[in-house]
Design a protein around this nucleic acid. Structure first.
Length: 261
DNA sequence: ATGGTGGCTTGGCCA
């Protein structure tokens, strides 16, 4: 059987609910990981999404951040928070185990810290968060299960992942420390789904609202699905749903969707 | 060009 899994930074669920419902009806991903819901759990429009057949789990906070996982398949477990720092109050991580035909699929929805400005405490927070993510991945990879780490990584992995890489030099999304941490995650044995399935050069997932970035295709690729070997072996397709950026009241990110067969 | 745009909130932070 085929399982489809998508990730989308919606930039505010309240502002994006109509676009989200339109997209769900059109794309019908089995599992969708959402970031930047910017909502507490109680205000998340759960019922309208459940009406489309989805099970919904959220890990929200007031005003900022917040992640959610939607699944047409049963969610057996859902666990918020990235291990490694009990004092971290930011809602950026949600792990779920979903029942699929023939077993279980572990899906983690992550919203990695932006890290700018780099001379503030936000940059070391980003790097320590990435160290925690690497430790978490190492631990989960030992299970030798199909595993997907999907989300907004706020990392431009390579120059080919930006229309104008020179404009990003010095930015936390492109700093060598950030790219190195992303590479260490890959080097544990995780596959960047888009890189694996196609020539990713010139394919972007984010276009800033400012300065006509969308109209000029001045984009970057920062939304990624990283796959364990057991998931990567089943990868049969990847799609960047770019047309969603052209809708009314768009998010600045678009959905990225994979198929496992 | 120290701006630009948008979301969540009511003064200002975050991206």
């Amino acid at each position: 059987m085929t399982v489809s899994v998508a990730t989308w930074n919606v930039n505010g669920i309240k502002a994006r609910i109509d676009n989200l419902l339109t997209w769900l009806e059109e794309s019908k991903p089995d599992i969708a990981c959402l970031q930047e819901i910017k909502s507490v759990d109680e205000n998340f429009p759960k019922a309208r999404i459940e009406d489309l057949g989805y099970n919904v789990v959220t890990h929200g906070q007031k005003g900022f951040n917040g992640v959610a996982i939607l699944s047409l398949l049963p969610i057996d477990e859902a666990t918020p928070r990235l291990p490694g720092d009990d004092g971290d109050e930011q809602a950026r991580f949600l792990e779920a185990v979903v029942s699929v035909e023939g077993g279980a699929l572990r899906v983690c929805c992550l919203y990695l810290p932006n890290g700018n400005p780099v001379d503030s405490d936000k940059f070391p927070y980003k790097l320590s968060w990435m160290e925690r993510l690497e430790a978490f991945a190492r631990d989960r990879l030992a299970l030798e299960e199909p595993l997907i780490l999907a989300g907004d990584y706020n990392v431009i992995p390579m120059p080919e992942d930006a229309r104008h890489p020179d404009e990003w030099v010095g930015d936390a999304l492109y700093r060598p420390e950030s790219r190195g941490a992303f590479r260490r995650l890959a080097n544990l044995g995780m596959t960047d789904a888009l890189r694996a399935s196609s020539d990713a050069d010139g394919l972007y997932t984010f276009w800033d609202y400012q300065a006509g970035a969308w109209q000029k295709n001045n984009g970057i690729r920062i939304d990624h699905l990283m796959l364990s070997p057991q998931a990567a072996d089943r990868l049969s397709g990847v799609t960047i749903e770019k047309h969603v950026r052209g809708w009314e009241k768009p998010s600045d990110h678009v959905p990225v969707r994979i198929e496992l067969t």
